[in-house]
Design a protein around this nucleic acid. Structure first.
Lengths: 237, 237
DNA sequence: AACTGTATGTCGATC
DNA sequence: GATCGACGTACAGTT
């Protein structure tokens, strides 16, 4: 598990280094570089010391000294290669769709390293909305007494309804779950579902319940004006 | 502009290395590590070779061999420090609000490097929605003949309206701009604005125009059902 | 600090 | 491939 690296390599060497290792290792380059991005938008970086990271899946990122986000990047599925032109290392990346181009010129290369890194296959985040939905599905009484599950993730043309239930009076109930504070979009989403269901099941009364740990003031106003309901639920999962 | 790095350092050395450089340099570590995240959600990583990147602004990221996103991270504004316990390097990161904790244990350290990286002060992305808005503001005839600007980014309790105009018939026109294909949310957003304005200016007729390069089928359906308008506009900026 | 909206969002799932 | 919604979204701007 030794790493491959080189300090102040020649452009030609760096070029070969990158092209031979890019498909199997994470490559990290440190150098003075300028860069350009063109695609859905455009951006340009003046010559300055930065860090370039590439991954075998085609990801390419340029990082600076602040922010979690790269300043310039192309996502997985892109392809890239290095070339040496006029004694300068150039890295070109293309994202197939939408067409996006990143070009990096590296007149001064301080360091290149190639690292063997894996990917956690079993990686799972807990406490997501999905977890909350699964929990509620089996504990519908928490939302309201007498609810019976009809379907979870009921897919419609207007999106998928987290939980579709029937209440003790025979009404259908669309439940929209948010793991964090609900905003106006959540309310509108729920309203769309209720409208859709009202249209589809004209003989049924349709209720809509928004389940979330909290709701913003304006969102609550909408909710009320639409005749929807809110059920506060701290996610203790 | 030489870089500081070390191969297979001792935990103690790595610890000092990190703590002395963390506030001024980007640090990259490669090693076998396990990690844990707890905060808004929870996640855990089994021992495996990965890359850790820290930045002077407090950003901490763990990257694997695929995806643009780190598997585990804490964003800018967090603080972190290294310690050596039972001969194992440990990195602890705390995000102040919301409280989130990342703990990394690195039994095997292959490489640590510290890099001087700047931040592009003048960096600017072109072709963003803001650009499009500024352009349209000065070229309202592209949207419709005879439009007069009343306000840009008209802030209301329900959000800010991209452009508020008056048409040649004296009606108010809310314009919502999207730089990419508009979905249902965009339509609902616009509808909210129109409703708000209708309420505020009861003596005025309020129109709503969605300006975007494209619109999804279902979004268009909503738009029509709400009596709103769509203006296709390729952003050629 | 809370809230709202944008993003080259990214990512995964469904159709 | 298009569309949709979740995300530990991150991030910037306004209240």
């Amino acid at each position: 598990m030794s790493i491959d690296y080189i300090l102040e390599p020649s452009p030609d060497y760096a070029c070969k280094f990158i092209n031979t290792k890019k498909s199997s290792q994470v490559i990290i380059l440190y150098g003075n570089l300028s860069a350009k991005y063109e695609g859905r938008a455009r951006a340009e970086l003046e010559l300055a010391p930065r860090i370039v990271i590439t991954k075998p899946d085609g990801t390419l990122m340029i990082h600076e000294s602040s922010k979690r986000e790269p300043v310039i990047w192309n996502p997985p599925g892109s392809t890239f290669y290095a070339l040496s032109e006029y004694g300068i290392l150039i890295i070109k990346s293309v994202r197939p769709s939408p067409k996006e181009y990143v070009t990096i010129e590296v007149p001064v290369i301080h360091f290149i390293g190639a690292f063997n890194v894996g990917v956690s296959k079993s990686y799972k985040v807990h406490g997501s909305e999905e977890d909350l939905r699964n929990y509620l599905m089996n504990n519908l009484h928490i939302v309201e007494d007498g609810l019976k599950l009809i379907s979870k993730e009921y897919h419609t043309q207007v999106g998928s309804i987290d939980l579709l239930c029937e209440d003790k009076n025979g009404n259908y109930v669309a439940i929209e779950i948010k793991r964090a504070q609900a905003g106006p979009e959540a309310v509108h989403q729920l309203k769309r579902y209720v409208e859709y269901l009202s249209n589809k099941f004209q003989n049924k009364k349709i209720r809509g319940i928004l389940v979330a740990p909290d709701i913003s003031a304006s969102a609550f106003k909408y909710l009320r004006s639409y005749g929807l309901e809110f059920r506060r639920l701290r996610s203790t999962i």
